[in-house]
Amino acid sequence: MKNSKELIALLNLKQINNNTFSGESVTIGSPNVFGGQVLAQAVNAAYRTISENRFLHSLHSYFLEAGDLTIAIDYHVEEIRDGGSFSTRRVTAKQNEKTIFILAASFHRKEDGFEHQTAMNNSIKQPEELLSWEDMVAKFGDFLPKRIKHFLSIERPIDFKPVRVPNPLEPENLPAKEEIWFKLKGEIPAMDLRLKHQILTYISDYNVLNAAFNPNAKEHNFGNTQTASLDHSMWFFRDFDFNDWMLFSAESPNTFGARGLSRGNIYTRKGELIASFAQEGLMRPKKK
């Protein structure tokens, strides 16, 4: 995938019947299906059973099995409840009758209420001052480890610009934080809030465990550690526009027992908080 148009096509599932949908997969460099893709496709399936005046406000999910890139994924939606203000859906994703993922999602009709939010870190560099993953390959590709160069070179529909770029040749332990600007590539079409939620869900599974790696980065990295998303939760707050850069800001309160927890917020460049997320991931050191 090279742009937002191809990403939107990937997330738009084929309808099998009223509550069952099917989707294909595209690799992001892993031998297995990208967790963010399954998340976003499940949100697409759930939204297809929801009335137009209700919007996703929270999701909670578990990754149960690694997805096979060569097999279509079937998504079945259970309509758990439609109340006066909220609707709840459960989505089960399967390949060859094996359940690989489950999602619970809640949708809320728009209402007025009180307001406050956590402030964005305004002391960081702006995206125009930073290198994207593609810039790093062009500038430092001859010096990067083969595994890192391969991952950064894969075509993606999103540009990522990390605020802090660690030196892979001289790793050091860092604070348990990660801040990355991101923006969709290509011409960005008009989108309703439903589609924005699906795309943001897809993006939210990128970079999320970096914060959990940072305190032990001198010895452990994605090359010598077995990693996998175990669960993923999100909460959606305000509408937003994909035409400008947005900030993914994560912190990790804990790693222990071969698991790491990351949580954080997603902001517009103006500092509006649009979503929060949390994920626990497997971080199992590989035996030498």
Rank of each mutant, 00 (worst) to 15 (best):
H220W: 15
A176K: 05
A211N: 01
F182Y: 12
G223E: 15
D231M: 13
E172W: 00
P215M: 15
N207M: 14
N224E: 02
F182G: 04
N221A: 07
I203S: 11
K218Y: 03
K183C: 06
A211D: 03
F236P: 04
D239F: 11
A211Q: 01
P171Q: 14
P166Y: 10
E170C: 09
S233Y: 03
I203F: 13
N214G: 01
T225D: 08
E178A: 10
F182L: 11
Q226L: 12
W235G: 03
A176H: 01
L195A: 02
I199Q: 05
A211L: 05
L200V: 04
R238A: 13
T201I: 04
E178F: 01
E178K: 05
E170G: 00
A176L: 09
F237A: 02
P175I: 04
Q198F: 01
Y202E: 06
L230A: 12
E178C: 05
L209D: 04
A228I: 07
S229F: 11
H232Q: 11
P168V: 07
K185C: 06
L184H: 01
M191V: 07
P175K: 03
K183V: 08
D241Y: 14
A212I: 00
V208H: 09
N173C: 11
E219P: 00
I188D: 04
D231Y: 08
E172A: 13
F182W: 07
L193Y: 14
N221C: 13
D241A: 13
N221F: 02
A228M: 14
T201Y: 02
T201F: 01
W235F: 03
N214I: 03
S204R: 00
N167H: 01
K218E: 15
L209V: 04
I180L: 10
F222N: 12
I180F: 11
E187Q: 14
A228T: 07
K185M: 09
V165W: 10
S233E: 11
R194P: 00
N224A: 07
K177R: 11
F242W: 15
F237N: 00
N214L: 10
M191I: 12
D192V: 00
A228V: 12
W181G: 06
S233V: 14
E187W: 06
S229A: 13
Q226A: 14
F182E: 02
E170L: 11
P168W: 05
R238M: 06
F240R: 04
W181E: 02
L209K: 04
K196W: 10
P175Y: 01
V208M: 14
A190H: 09
F242D: 08
P168G: 02
P189Y: 00
N224Q: 07
F222A: 13
H220V: 13
S229I: 08
E178N: 10
G223P: 02
V208P: 00
L184Q: 12
W235N: 02
P215K: 15
K218S: 15
E172R: 13
F240V: 07
F242N: 08
V208L: 15
N214Y: 09
F213Y: 09
M191D: 13
D239K: 13
N214A: 12
A212W: 04
K177Y: 00
K196T: 01
L209E: 03
V165Q: 06
T225G: 07
N210Q: 15
Y206Q: 08
D239G: 02
L193N: 08
A211E: 03
N216D: 14
V165G: 05
Y206H: 12
K218I: 07
